[in-house]
Amino acid sequence: MSATRPPNRLFRLFAPRASALLLIALCALSPLRASAQVTTVKPEIPLTAAQEKQLEVLLPDLRCLVCQNESLAESRAPLALDLKYEVRNLVAQGKSDAEIKQYLTARYGDFVLFRPPFDPRTWLLWLGPIGLVIIGLLALLWNVRQSRKPKATTTPTVDPAALRKLLDE
């Protein structure tokens, strides 16, 4: 249509800026509209060196429930920070790893543990891969045996009379 003049130069020049401005305006307005999650200030919990070590080993084994593939050690999600604080509190009280895991699984289920426990519900999970390997090995063994066996050659039934007749000709 407008081959002689560049189409909408003004628009092309300003459109990206206009949308950026709109975005900035929206961002600037949003704090006025939405309220935010409250973070309460909690007292620091001092730990002994041994307890710090216990926490350091334990936290990577615990799952953040909001960001499911992160551990509590890595996550910055508000719930993860809360749970980390609770775990720290339990460590300070001298609770064992098992007791702390019990505290968490009673509330959130086994899912909170990156290493699920070995019980009847998880037998398939834990033993399945070993079972598959065994099935695979058995199949392989069977295949090898089959191929080593001398081929059963089917001896064709020969009609002697027909053969003689053929030779005679």
């Binding site: 409250v38 909690k42 909001v66 508000p78 809360d82 749970l83 609770e86 509330r107 959130y108």
Partner: peptide, 14 residues
Amino acid sequence: DLDGRTGIDWGVYG
């Protein structure tokens, strides 16, 4: 539940 502790006791994750 200002500090979210009751939420934790009830297993609330979101």
